Simulated scan of single mutants.
Amino acid sequence: MISVTYADALASVATTIQLEPYMGSTLTMRAEVNGHEGLFQFDTGGGESIISSDFAKTIGCTPWGRVTGFRMTGERLDFQRCDDLQFKTAGAILKAPTVGVLDIMGMLPKGAPHLDGSLGLDIFAGRTITFDESGKTLTIESVDSFKDRIRNAKEVPIRLVRDAEGVALTVDVAVPTSHGMAWMEMDSGNGGGVLVIAKYLADQFHLDPNKKDPQSTKFEIAGGIPVEGQAITLDLIKDGNIGARFFRKWVLTVDLASGRAWLLRRACPADSTHQASQRLACQTPA
């Protein structure tokens, strides 16, 4: 039975947002602001949604003030902001009290296709959503769709993290170690194919913190969800980062009001019409 808290986080009708592949490793979504459509990376680990200075000018915003955030390596980012924006997509209106103004193209490889910004979980605050990376969909759940969605899913413990004075929103998932619980960011924007582990936890994952090349590791998210693959160790300000490779096999449903989450393993496609790369990603350990 769904509690009042869940009901408050659920829409009356489910809305599915179609996502588009970007540079073969991450996904984007289209949204309209003040009558102008933009193309934005969708990034569960982005924290605060951002738009470019050019897009801010297009929609009639004059950036002001300052927002300060930190990347997982501790690098400080200072940027201006636009307030009270509404992103319209697939019939849904997503309200953003504060959006950063930062030129994302300067953070991407030279020659990367144009983006107008990056949208994170902050614009879905208070809602229940499902991210299906392989299916290229992002669903705002209704009461009925939520019941169906979690019927066969496994609940996992998470923390909702609100950095940048409460503006940002990300999800950390629990990972048991021999010394206690580690908390790793779930980051669809990390399309590099490797897990990232803090150097101070390297021994807990049988990794050499002095090696620069990727190393094999295997562990479980609390609840028995397996994670396996290549990992690098870095000097981080958080325990670790689980990236897009994991989401190719697991569908994430998260209640951003109550702070609960569920994972459902995606079935490997048997249809020969599926691209070989999709089948390989499904069959390869997360």
Rank of each mutant, 00 (worst) to 15 (best):
G117R: 08
F131I: 13
G91E: 04
I51G: 05
A96V: 11
L207C: 06
A90E: 03
D235Y: 01
L19M: 15
A153H: 11
V175F: 08
R127C: 06
E185H: 11
F247I: 09
G35S: 13
E220W: 01
A270K: 14
F146M: 07
V167K: 11
T58K: 15
D271T: 11
L234A: 10
E185D: 13
S258D: 14
T253G: 08
F146G: 00
D132V: 11
S12K: 12
A153P: 12
D163S: 15
C268K: 08
T26H: 00
Q230P: 01
R71F: 12
L94N: 09
D213T: 14
A286V: 13
S52K: 01
T217D: 09
Q18A: 15
M1P: 08
G60K: 02
S134E: 12
L252C: 03
D83P: 00
N152S: 14
T28K: 09
Y22M: 05
P226N: 07
G240H: 05
P97Q: 04
K212R: 14
Q80I: 04
V156G: 01
G46S: 05
D203I: 02
A276E: 14
K110M: 14
V67S: 13
C82V: 04
K212F: 08
G259D: 09
T177E: 05
D54A: 15
I197S: 07
E48M: 14
L102M: 10
F79R: 10
Q278K: 12
T5K: 12
K211T: 08
G135D: 09
D84A: 13
S145V: 03
I123A: 01
D84I: 09
G100K: 09
T253F: 08
E32S: 15
R265Q: 15
G60A: 05
G106P: 00
I51M: 10
D163A: 15
A182I: 03
T128F: 04
D148Q: 13
S12D: 15
R265C: 10
S12E: 14
G69K: 00
Q41F: 07
S258V: 11
D239R: 06
A92S: 13
G240T: 06
T170A: 13
V67T: 11
H274S: 13
G224I: 12
F70T: 15
P113H: 04
L77Q: 14
M107G: 01
G69C: 04
R81F: 10
A267V: 13
L10F: 04
A164L: 02
R66A: 12
S216T: 10
H179W: 05
I197D: 02
A168R: 05
N210C: 00
S118W: 03
A31E: 00
P63S: 04
T253H: 08
I17P: 08
V167P: 03
V33G: 02
T44L: 05
I129M: 05
L27D: 07
T89D: 03
V67A: 12
V156L: 01
H179C: 06
P176E: 07
L207I: 08
F219D: 09
V67E: 13
D103Q: 02
T58C: 02
M105G: 10
N34I: 00
T68N: 05
C268Q: 02
